[in-house]
Design a protein around this nucleic acid. Structure first.
Length: 491
RNA sequence: CGGGGUGUAGCGUAGCCCGGUUAUCGCGCGUCGUUUGGGACGACGAGGUCGCAGGUUCGAAUCCUGCCACCCCGACCA
């Protein structure tokens, strides 16, 4: 029978895992905390990747690749960054295995193959990249350097969840070098904007752009910009970050350049990244109790066609009748799957495409054929309607756009309903467990931030960039505040 | 890493407390036939290191110890 999905209201966390299972996106691997991304899940990631890659190229970046291993001495050069990541680093200490004389057929680490210097498996690549940039940069004429890499990184997390936090994950990391502070800040903001545009226009996921507080900032950054999204349980998910690194890495790796006046100066840096965590964000933004819901722009299959027939001749007739419609759709760049698998009944296929979030399903059987009609079902609202085969292609093209817009609107409405201004800490404490974003005044101190975190588990997600500059008093201490910040529980 | 829970065929499970033949059932899988408008039905069939490793016992899925994995809650995490 049907694979069951735990309802969101019963157990949101279980629902999330069920969606990944029924939609066949990923599964746990034999390595603790690591996942296998399955073909359908990877197809979605590839769509994300292809679009972002295009946007990076359009903003002047080039791809390159740096090694997965970072010599420990390089890794520790930028102290804050190294400290920040030290607790979650995998370290390579040996380079060879040998037969274990005490356990025939088994292998053991060859003690004679100990590395003279340990290699850190990158949790991020600033160190190896800045040690390389040092060799590339002599003059302002060598700047800016605008590079991105698609890579895997490893962070030895204590507690993992598929896509949201895994020990190894896929991401892109942009690393840029600039001659001036202003230019680096501009780059940092530009890429955060690229992320916001991408998540909103392609993932149909509204985000709030903001700045991280010092305690939430990337280790080694002077400023961290972020995009924060609200999941359906009201919790916040950091979907992307863009860091202004100041001259921290330039100083740590001694990367100087000669400016136009011939003086030596340290290079200004940025780094920015999004990861397979976006897959988790995508799932938790749109999906429902029936399965995954995908925005058309990221759906590996846009339209699934389910023919209903008894005889092979009827199947052929259906194929013949739909040929021009399918050709027309494909010519418009729409991915169509005509499912003529005779081992599955239509009902099974309906449920399957629903679980996988295919935006539009077409069904056509003898009755439709006779009337020249076809049934169109949209995944986002579950609505079905019957239209003429002739109008089908145009209808579907328009419908896909409508679904894309509707998903974004629905997510935005949800967020607006669950975001509120709040001025009383008592009020805040009584409401925070219900989820949602809270716009509150904050006195700007790490102490207050920590107190709220200890007492409520909520953190400051960001200082919204477009927040009105409203004077007020900190909801906790009553000290003066220049703008409201977003408090929420986060993933 | 601390507390709790779970682990029996690809998936979900019964059996475990109270040890005793060939380990239960459903889904899925294979063959054949009938079917096909919301996860079809019948017949036959295949599929198991009972998470792993020790121990107790004449005998262990069942009792004991250790370990591993996953889930939940903490801690931790840009």
């Amino acid at each position: 029978m049907a694979e069951k999905i735990t309802k969101r209201e019963i157990d949101y966390s279980k629902w999330y895992l069920d969606i990944i299972k029924v939609a066949d996106l990923a599964e746990h691997s034999d390595v603790k905390g690591c996942m296998v991304i399955k073909p359908y899940g990877f197809a979605i990631w590839e769509k994300i990747k292809d679009q972002l890659d295009k946007m990076f190229k359009e903003t002047g970046h080039q791809n390159a690749y740096f090694p997965i291993f970072v010599p420990k001495s390089l890794f520790e050069a930028e102290e804050k960054n190294a400290e920040g990541f030290a607790k979650e680093c995998a370290v390579v200490t040996h380079h060879r295995l040998m037969n274990d004389p005490e356990n025939p057929g088994k292998l053991k680490v060859d003690p004679a193959a100990k590395l003279t210097e340990e290699l850190v498996v990158r949790p991020t690549s600033e160190a190896i990249i800045w040690s390389t940039y040092k060799k590339w940069i002599q003059s302002y004429r060598d700047l800016p350097i605008l590079i991105n890499q698609w890579a895997n990184v490893v962070r030895w997390e204590m507690r993992t969840r598929l896509f949201l936090r895994t020990a190894e994950f896929l991401w892109q990391e942009g690393h840029t070098a600039h001659a001036t502070k202003a230019e680096a800040i501009e780059e940092t903001e530009k890429m955060n904007n690229v992320y916001a545009t991408f998540t909103q226009d392609f993932m149909a996921m509204p985000v709030i752009q903001g700045l991280k507080t010092e305690s939430e900032r990337f280790a080694g950054a002077d400023e961290t910009y972020c995009i924060e999204a609200m999941m359906q349980d009201g919790k916040a998910l950091q979907a992307g970050t863009s860091h202004f690194l100041g001259q921290n890495f330039a100083k740590a790796f001694d990367v100087k350049f000669a400016n136009k006046e011939g003086q030596q100066d340290y290079v200004w840096a940025t780094s920015w990244g999004v990861s397979t965590r976006l897959m988790g964000a995508l799932i938790m933004t749109h999906s429902d109790d029936l399965g995954l819901v995908l925005p058309p722009k990221l759906a590996p299959i846009h339209v699934a066609i389910v023919p209903i027939y008894r005889e092979d001749s009827q199947l052929e007739e259906i194929q013949e009748k739909l040929k021009s419609t399918i050709d027309e759709l494909r010519a418009k760049g729409i991915t169509v799957k005509f499912d003529d698998d005779n081992n599955r009944k239509p009902g099974w296929k309906f449920a399957e495409y629903e679980a996988k979030g295919v935006p539009v399903r077409l069904a056509i059987g003898p009755r439709d054929l006779e009337a020249g009609n076809i049934e169109v079902a949209r995944r986002d609202t579950q609505e079905k309607q019957t239209i003429s085969i002739e109008s089908c292609a145009d209808h579907v093209v328009a419908l896909l756009d409508e679904i894309q817009d509707n998903l974004h609107k629905r997510a935005l409405d949800f967020r607006e309903k669950n975001i509120q201004k709040i001025d009383s800490y008592e009020d805040f404490k009584s409401k925070i467990d219900g989820g949602g974003f809270f716009l509150a005044h904050w006195d700007g101190t790490a102490e207050t931030e920590e107190k709220v975190k200890q007492e409520t588990k909520a953190t400051i997600r960001c200082l919204p960039l477009d927040g009105e500059k409203e004077e007020g008093k900190c909801m906790v201490t009553g000290a003066p505040s220049k703008q409201r910040v977003i408090f929420a529980k986060a993933y």
